[in-house]
Design a protein around this nucleic acid. Sequence first.
DNA 1: ATACTTGCAAATGATTTGCCAGTGT
DNA 2: ACACTGGCAAATCATTTGCAAGTAT
Lengths: 136, 136
Amino acid sequence: MAAVRARGLRLSAARRLVLEALFAADGPVGAEGIASGLDGRLPSSDLASVYRNLETLEALGLVRHVHLGHGPGRYALSGSSGLEYVVCERCGEHVALAPEALDGVRDAVREACGYRARFSHLPLAGVCPACAAEED
Amino acid sequence: MAAVRARGLRLSAARRLVLEALFAADGPVGAEGIASGLDGRLPSSDLASVYRNLETLEALGLVRHVHLGHGPGRYALSGSSGLEYVVCERCGEHVALAPEALDGVRDAVREACGYRARFSHLPLAGVCPACAAEED
DNA sequence: ATACTTGCAAATGATTTGCCAGTGT
DNA sequence: ACACTGGCAAATCATTTGCAAGTAT
């Protein structure tokens, strides 16, 4: 929250609540989940304000959002983690990995088409081992 | 279109138009683009019917859709190509590649987390060489 | 003939915006 | 004080659904 003040933004109750929800969440959460106070565990707030604050915080680089398949976008603090995601398109489960875990993939991508791959906004999609076993 | 008949579906004008638009397009197109007849080059049709037909054709395995970043989904014939996509999250440009071109990436993904990677629905995201040069 | 399809309108889900009253600094 | 924010309602965008009329087979 010091970071919020440092950039000249006000630390209002609604803003603090967004930050607290993201901090308390165990993974990326939807705006609806934040507005509901993580389903009652925290005071709830207005959905439009949540979206506005997420936008603001994302512009400051404190928050990121990821699209884990269809459905609403999910938001997370970018500060500490910088995590990247992998989703299974069959069962929908996702795993969060430290960027280093995917450096081998990044190298392969660079070799294949020259891009610098990033999996924090659009996750790496595929079929998880469990689903792959069922498919065969 | 033979494939459509083969599965017991009727080949109506609206349905044919969706197929023709996808065939005439040079890449994945949005539903709006199909409904507008690729901006006038073909007769236009009703947006709701376009969505319904895309859904039907996708269920038959004739059509696929890909999410190239924010904005509406894009649809393409799956028949001939089976292409996979790579998008630049900075400039928005995308490239379509034959699956084999990304087999090295698939191997790296399997090694990193056991998943069977697929880039036809959620593209491989990153920063393209041109944007990477500008960033540095 | 009759089920599958369409076209139009209205509903939905996610997100954004307008506006004015409220509040952090 | 004053600009930055919040809350509420209404607007927007992409997509889906209800339903009566139309049509492919």
